[in-house]
């Protein structure tokens, strides 16, 4: 079973991203998928998480994830607000929306890192909601490229399942761009 934690702020589409990943994984043939928001109230702008579990067999655990295989960060300013690395396995993947290179991030050498400027990609494809770039779908592209669990074709199918025609096309374009532009730095520990 793969466990994924999404970090973002209220309004950034963290919950939707976790859902689309679950749906894409199901479409790819994983029998067990769950996605859950942080249980409780949500506030726009406040740090929040969502989670996705992906497994070959139906999932029989609903507890909160302690250590994820993959952690996705939609807002790099969260590193100073939340203990993001504390919820990542030492051999896991850290996927960050940032203009920085993986080398520039202050993380231990063991973990695998991928970065992409998802905000720039979103702006390029006019993926803007309430004045802010929509960074969740580009991060799905990075996920497909780096984590290698759900491939980009099924991410696209997942987006099509969730979104209507025009919205799906724009989001898919952004997802593909992020897939191409992702900067990968494998860690010194074994890949999960």
């Amino acid at each position: 079973m793969y466990e994924v934690i999404w970090h973002g702020r209220g309004g950034q589409g963290v919950v939707i991203a976790a859902q689309i990943l679950a749906e894409s994984a199901y479409l790819q043939g994983f029998k067990g998928v769950t996605s859950a928001p942080t249980f409780g109230p949500e506030r726009r702008g406040a740090p929040l998480t969502a989670s996705t579990r992906i497994s070959d067999t139906p999932i029989r655990t609903f507890s909160q994830i302690e250590r994820a295989d993959i952690v996705v960060v939609l807002d790099p300013t969260l590193f100073t607000a939340v203990n993001i690395l504390g919820s990542l396995k030492p051999t896991g993947w850290l996927l960050v929306n940032t203009s920085q290179q993986p080398d520039e991030l202050d993380v231990t050498a063991g973990i695998n890192v991928a970065t992409v400027d998802a905000a720039a990609i979103a702006l390029k494809f006019h993926l803007i909601k309430e004045g802010a770039p929509i960074v969740n779908t580009p991060m799905l592209g990075v996920f497909a490229r780096a984590a290698g669990i759900v491939d980009v074709e099924h991410m696209e199918k997942g987006l099509k399942w969730k979104l209507s025609g025009t919205a799906a096309a724009t989001n898919i374009a952004a997802l593909r761009a992020a897939y191409e532009e992702a900067r990968i730095k494998p860690g010194t520990s074994q890949v999960p």
Binding site: Q19, A22, Y26, K31, G32, V33, T34, S35, A36, P37, F39, G40, P58, I59, F62
Partner: peptide, 12 residues
Amino acid sequence: YDGFVLSHTMMP
């Protein structure tokens, strides 16, 4: 059924 644990968790 359990609130949030099932009510807000998506699954097939």
